[in-house]
Amino acid sequence: MTWLRALLAAGLSVIMPGAGHVLVRDWLRAVLFAGLFLSASALFLPLDQLAAAGAITSYDEVREQATIMAEGTDAVAQFFLSFIALFAAIDATFRALGYPSGGTDDAAGATCPECGKEIDEDLAFCHWCTTRLEPEGADEEPIHS
């Protein structure tokens, strides 16, 4: 299930950077990647040509618009947008596999054994990945007198 989730997160991030992070519930990174990609798109893509073309109603018009976008965009812009999408896909894949975002393991509280994120100790489950958590001391057998 984890690999399938990681592949789905990567695929969504290739289509729209930030969408894979939504799948793994990493909201801040989703907003950052989507905002970065949309800002770069607004800067580099020939949006004036697309606005003049009007609404898209058929597959042929989609192909025509894609051709306009490819011809009107230089190689540097295409590389930059592809780099953002690729980096978002790689990051979403690692996040879906459970790798933490930071380089240190200095968590202030308890962490989930499944996803590794910090959890609320009052809950019986991880609010990030919904894994059921065993209460501390559950391993001990009750004492009968």
Rank of each mutant, 00 (worst) to 15 (best):
T2P: 00
W3L: 10
W3Y: 08
R5I: 12
A6D: 07
L7S: 10
L7Y: 08
L8R: 12
A10T: 03
G11N: 03
G11D: 09
G11H: 06
G11S: 05
G11I: 06
L12A: 10
L12G: 15
L12K: 10
S13L: 02
S13A: 07
V14W: 14
I15Y: 08
M16W: 11
G18K: 11
A19Y: 14
A19R: 11
V24E: 00
V24C: 05
V24R: 00
R25L: 04
D26V: 01
L28Q: 04
R29D: 10
R29E: 10
A30D: 03
V31R: 01
V31F: 02
F33Y: 15
A34T: 12
F37I: 01
L38K: 03
A40Y: 00
S41T: 08
A42I: 08
A42G: 15
A42K: 13
L43C: 05
F44K: 00
F44Q: 00
L45P: 02
A51V: 07
A52E: 15
A52N: 15
G54N: 09
I56V: 13
T57W: 06
S58D: 14
Y59H: 09
Y59R: 06
D60W: 08
D60P: 02
D60Y: 11
R63S: 05
Q65F: 03
Q65I: 12
T67N: 15
T67R: 15
I68K: 08
I68S: 06
M69R: 07
M69C: 09
M69S: 08
A70P: 00
G72A: 02
D74F: 07
Q78F: 13
Q78Y: 12
F79V: 11
L81C: 02
L81I: 03
F83P: 07
F83S: 14
I84W: 07
L86F: 09
F87A: 11
A89T: 09
I90F: 09
T93E: 01
T93N: 03
F94H: 02
F94T: 05
F94E: 06
R95M: 05
A96H: 03
L97F: 09
G98Y: 10
P100I: 13
P100L: 14
G102C: 01
G103W: 11
G103E: 13
T104D: 08
A107E: 05
A108I: 06
G109H: 04
G109W: 00
A110W: 00
A110T: 05
T111R: 12
T111P: 04
C112K: 04
C112P: 07
K117T: 03
E118S: 14
E118N: 13
E118T: 13
I119K: 00
E121D: 15
D122T: 10
F125H: 13
H127Q: 04
W128G: 06
C129D: 15
T130D: 08
T130R: 10
R132Q: 15
L133E: 05
E134Q: 10
E134T: 14
P135H: 09
D139L: 03
E140D: 09
E140T: 05
E141L: 14
P142L: 07
I143M: 12
